[in-house]
Design a protein around this nucleic acid. Structure first.
Lengths: 399, 399
DNA sequence: TACTTTTGCTTGACGGCCGGACAAAAGGTG
DNA sequence: CACCTTTTGTCCGGCCGTCAAGCAAAAGTA
């Protein structure tokens, strides 16, 4: 397996591609793999051996015999490594340890102040990550990588925030360098909403090619899956729906300095404000959701009205993008019925039948964990890419 | 080269990938190819030989000597085959014969009536295609393929129109089957605006990853390039901007049955109508453009106002998509200054700096040929994909 | 017990790619 | 003119991955 000529061998083992077939989690027999890949028995046997030796595959019982020796079932082994996944907001952070399937094994919520700057915040995240690793008995050699979502635009290829509006001191900071030193492994960074989209897509809609994930909380943002892959845009700024002009935005001032932004009329704080003007004091967004869940009609109506405003923007997105699924998450989406009702009312009424015919508008199913699940998914997709697996196996064989 | 076991050989020659490097048109020496690919001299030599034998590469002079034998320059040979490209509108069609670079060699404009149904229209296109082939002395053996753009949604994988609003009788019609029988070769079909986006991208912005092409004519539509590839959407309905709600759409009735659509206030006919209400009769969209080019202030103002309406919708698209380029084409865009001014005014004023910082909003450079160039590009990208080239070379070696 | 099915392992063959070697081509230099 | 340098074009032996085929073992069914 060691490369003789020093040049990368072009006829690589191909075990990585075989592993990718198994990443959906369904166990398969060797015979099924032979059928799926079209490879020879001997080839599949050799690749399965390599993956079993690396611990990336395990045997999981036997299938029913059809008259002879029962075939052994092979399955992807999600415990071949662990991932540290973190989802950072303005005031809260969630740090989790997941398996290679993106399932949360252990987690810890932190109160943070993102405006304190990158060093103190990332140091606390790193400490929490190390304690999660040691409390679950995982050494650093089991760590496959670290994924982290930040509440602002990120240049994914470098892992650096770019001009984030609510993260003073973070602009162009080397997040991967810091976390690699403090925790280890490859470190991948992205915008938090992008990761929520990635997580929702990977765990709930793996076969959907086009979808939009909308987060409605303090801000409003969207993550876009195009052709089964995350669409990040030219500057990593795609999905920034918060500062689109709302239909009835009027002169409502927005934190961005402009007026009439969607975020100024349909975000959590905006709905709380609108409700206060009607004489109902919900306190904050959390209180708003509580009221709505208790059946308060005023709160439900206000949330539904926000849904309509969001729906007008999403109608344009539907016409432009033609997704099959719109998933809505974020704190306000916990009062899902009202919000979805408002969104659906406008989107289905306003878009063309061809685009809405097979469109589902649904609540997020990953709930509050969408961010960390997405961060873990991002790491797993990187680490278990065909090239990375080939590389790993080659090193294991050489060492 | 013939496959012994009947199974596709996985260790294929790889000449296709080498050809892909040459598709940008720049001539290169063998030494440069060796550096770029990292392959051995002998391997590059063998692949170049195969491509030279197939006519896909040609030698194009010598480079400067650095003291010894001057290296021979190799270049992609765009005359290794021809493509029939057709762009169909409601009343006009353009049929062209292009080389493998997408350059139009010969063309013919037709008056058609798309509502006459697929058979008579496609038969006329096919007759024109055959006459273009014979008049340029090209036999069917030189035909690499046929590409055709239709004014409605198309399921690209099957080449069948899906519920097209202005093409009665075309729904689910087997366009590729008909044209393959009547002309020959592989036949690829797509929406006309998608093809305009593809053509503009391939010929003017080949390295741009995210862009939007907007066509403003009788209707308004957009083609989207995401990650360097065409984004078609879940039902092939992506980019349908014409029936998005315009900001000042009011109750203006639209042909789709809804009110306030962008197409109802900013398309060519809509601007002509608005102008007539101000007492200026431009006749049709062509007359409108003529007036604007002659310096008529009323016409320019009306077009600019249409640009503003389009700009409001595009501002949302920019926030959602974060493209690097928006190219504007179609008949009305021939009065580019006024239209672009209106679009820029709103988009740059309304979107966030991060998204607009490197955004170019420009007029289409492919002009009236965008559609056929895109159709040709679609065929070339298919025919010269690595797999197709491998296949072609293998057959040539076997036969 | 005989048969079937699946696995694990081995063997011979083939094709792609590598590295090296050598001749030819084309220009510069003494 | 002879000689050197650089690059190309071509050939050859060898390595590696894959394939097809075969055989023994395992484990269940008839």
């Amino acid at each position: 397996m060691t490369s003789i000529g020093g040049v990368a061998p072009s006829g690589s083992s191909g075990a990585g591609e075989l592993l990718r077939l198994m990443l959906d989690g369904t166990p398969r027999t060797r015979a099924e793999l032979i059928k799926m890949t079209g490879l020879a028995r001997s080839t599949v046997g050799a690749r399965v051996d390599a993956l079993l030796a690396a611990g990336l595959l395990t045997t999981s019982g036997e299938a029913a015999s059809t008259g002879g020796r029962p075939p052994a079932r092979l399955a992807f082994n999600p415990d071949a490594g662990v991932v540290i996944a973190a989802d950072l907001g303005a005031t809260h952070a969630l740090v989790a340890l997941t398996d290679l399937r993106g399932r949360v094994v252990a987690e810890k919520a932190l109160r943070i102040d993102i405006s304190a700057g990158p060093e103190p915040v990332l140091d606390r995240v790193a400490r929490t990550a190390r304690s999660l690793l040691s409390s679950t008995g995982q050494g650093r050699e089991h760590l496959a990588g670290v994924g982290i979502g930040l509440p602002g635009p990120v240049e994914h290829s470098t892992g650096r925030p770019v001009l984030p509006p609510i993260m003073p001191g973070w602009d162009n900071y080397d997040v991967p360098g810091h976390l690699a030193r403090a925790v280890g492994g490859p470190v991948l960074v992205d915008n938090d909403v992008n990761l929520m989209a990635l997580g929702e897509h990977a765990t709930v809609y793996p076969h959907v090619e086009q979808m939009i994930f909308v987060k409605v909380a303090t801000g409003i943002g969207a993550g876009i899956i195009s052709g089964g892959r995350l669409h990040r845009g030219a500057q990593g700024a795609a999905g920034d729906l918060g500062h689109v002009a709302a239909l009835n935005g009027g002169d409502t001032p927005c934190t961005c300095g402009n007026v009439g932004c969607l975020e100024a009329v349909a975000s959590g704080p905006a709905v709380v404000r609108a409700l206060r003007e009607r004489g109902v004091d919900a306190g904050d967004a959390r209180g708003l959701v509580r009221l709505a869940k208790q059946g308060d009609l005023e709160a439900a109506a206000a949330i539904r009205e926000a849904g309509r405003e969001i729906g007008h923007v999403l109608a344009t997105c539907v016409s432009l993008f033609n997704p099959s699924v719109i998933a809505v998450g974020g704190l306000v989406a916990q009062a899902a019925e009202s919000l979805l009702a408002g969104i659906r009312e406008i989107v289905y009424g306003r878009s063309l039948p061809l685009a809405t015919g097979e469109l589902q508008i649904v609540a997020s199913r990953t709930g509050g964990h969408a961010g960390v699940i997405g961060a873990a998914t991002m790491v797993v997709q990187h680490v278990l890419s065909a090239e990375q697996v080939e590389h790993h196996l080659a090193e294991a064989a050489a060492g």
